[in-house]
Structures are given as C-alpha cells and as structure tokens.
Design a protein around this nucleic acid. Structure first.
Lengths: 149, 149
DNA sequence: ATCGATGCAAAGTTTTTGCAATGCT
DNA sequence: AGCATTGCAAAAACTTTGCATCGAT
C-alpha cells in the first residue's frame, strides 16, 4: 500500500532470496531514508498476508522470497552459492514422511546443504567450520568470514 | 581434555540437539562457574575436531549434537518440537540431487520443517509468522545465565 | 617460564521494541 | 481528530574478542 512496502516487495522479487539487510540496501538505492526497522516490519507483514515467505539458508540469516517462487534451496557449504531445485524433488520424501511419521513437510522453508557440482570437482575439503562462506559472486560482505584465524 | 570440555561433550550428548545457551545452562548445573564464552569456544573446537556438529533448526539458534548421532531433524512450525528421522529417508533424494544437479547432499546439517503429527490433528493454522514458536512444553528459558538469584 | 585454557568484561551483529512525528481519511 | 505507518534510538538477544589469571608441562 505504501511506497516503502512496494519497494520491499519489488526488492524481494528482484533479489530472489535475500536477507533483510540485502533488501534494505536495495530499497535504500531508491529511497535512502528507509530504515532497516521498516524492512523488518514490512517483511513480517508481507509474510503474514502471504506475499513473501522466508527460508533458512543454513546460516543464521533468513532469506525472503516471493511466496509463489517455490523451490528448494541448495546451499553449498564450500562456496556459499545458493542453487534452486524444483520442489517436486521432495515429493517422494514428503510422502514417506507423511506415511511414516505423520509429518507434513514444508519443502520450501528450509535449505538443503551440501556441496555443489563446481565445488565437488575441487578435491579440497570444505572448511566446514562455519557455514556456507561468503559467495564468490555475491558480495555478501558481512563479516568477511576468515577461515583460518 | 579439560573438565569443562568434558562437561560440554556430555551436555551435547545428553541434550541431543541443543543451543549453546541450553548447553551452557546444563553445564552450569555441574560447574556454575563455567562461562558462556567457554561454551562457544569449546563447541567450536569440538566441531573442528569432529566430535560434534551443528545443525540449523530453522530458527536462528544453531543446535549441536554428537557427530555420530546422525539423523534428520524435523521441526514443527506449530509447536516447535524437534523430531528425528533416520537419514536414509534422504537417500533417494540425495541420489537424485547428485544425478540431476551434481549436488552432494549433507543430510544432517539442516532441519526439515513442516507440521508434526500432533499439530496436524489440530485444525488450527500455524501462526507461521515466525518460525517454530516456543514449544508448549519446552520452556525455552534461555537467558537463565549469570543471574544467580 | 611457557603455553594453552578459562573467566570476565566489553564490543560487534542482528533483530525487536518504544515513542514521537508524519501523512492519509 | 483518529489511525496506521514510519524513523530514530534504545534495548534485547546472540556471538565474538581482548586481556589478565590460572594450571600444567
């Protein structure tokens, strides 16, 4: 309804899966005055009305994406990249869970982690100390994850 | 090696999957002087040497468990309870991911979310605003530290 | 004496809350 | 005016870091 909210929706849509801070940065490119608080509150609202959903990529930071942008996230321990896979990959699993445990799976809410094809080629073991490190092309310049301290 | 570390290992083992703070609380039942800092440092160490591993349950707080305690976590949106399922549930999925995307799945690192059998019975829609809310029986009394009343 | 482990306090991050100001009806 | 939304600042929750002390080799 408000311009800020529209900007948040747009940002979520454009970024695909982004943390609140990334969304904030994006929104501020258009409207620098927008506060991070508003991002959080808007995201919460948008989620409640079902426009966006959030997913946990393994790291602490949740990422937001469009509600209808349904896919499974695959995050690589090694390079931190996030790939996407169709949710029907999970169908069989969802079925088994339902049968065996009565558990109804929400396939889109979490990310699966592992190692992507690119990183599998490298023989190097992941420094699995932390989670997915900052991506190679994503400049997720948060806390510059130093592997060896 | 040190008594504190042993206590941390024990706590992780007993609690199954616990946040650093829960572990801290547990350890402090035996050794009240132990500081939360030590918990974090010890956990980091134990993880590096492969004694424990951490898993993201969807909420921000990572939980730690024994390395060999391999299972998939199923966390319920509704009640926040964490169930466990054998990892071989994921085998078929892992295989497909490998084939189709070259992605090597690490089944134990993340939790699957959804709604557990108990909560499925209640017709109530989950207040899916946040993640798993504080459980009904889990009194997630985290911040119980230093305040030795 | 040396070196690592620990406790304490302070700093850093990320997210939430309180409150006053703003804008729309 | 009434009401929701926003921005700012402070608080809270969570984690890491610096530094002095303690213990064992």
């Amino acid at each position: 309804m408000t311009p800020q909210r529209q900007l948040v929706v747009d940002a979520v849509r454009e970024l695909g899966h982004a943390t609140p801070e990334q969304i904030c940065t994006r929104v501020q490119q258009t409207a620098p005055a927008v506060n991070i608080t508003t991002i959080y509150r808007t995201l919460e609202l948008l989620e409640r009305i079902g426009l966006v959903r959030h997913t946990h990529l393994g790291h602490g930071a949740p990422t937001y994406s469009e509600e209808d942008h349904q896919h499974v996230h695959l995050v690589c321990h090694h390079c931190g990249r996030v790939a996407e896979a169709p949710t029907d990959l999970m169908d069989a699993l969802a079925h088994r869970l339902q049968e065996e445990s009565g558990f109804t799976l929400d396939a889109t809410h979490v990310a699966l982690s592992g190692r992507c094809a690119d990183c599998a080629e490298d023989g190097e073991p992941a420094d699995d100390t932390g989670d997915a490190a900052a991506g190679p092309d994503h400049h997720t310049d948060r806390h510059t994850e130093g592997s060896a301290r």
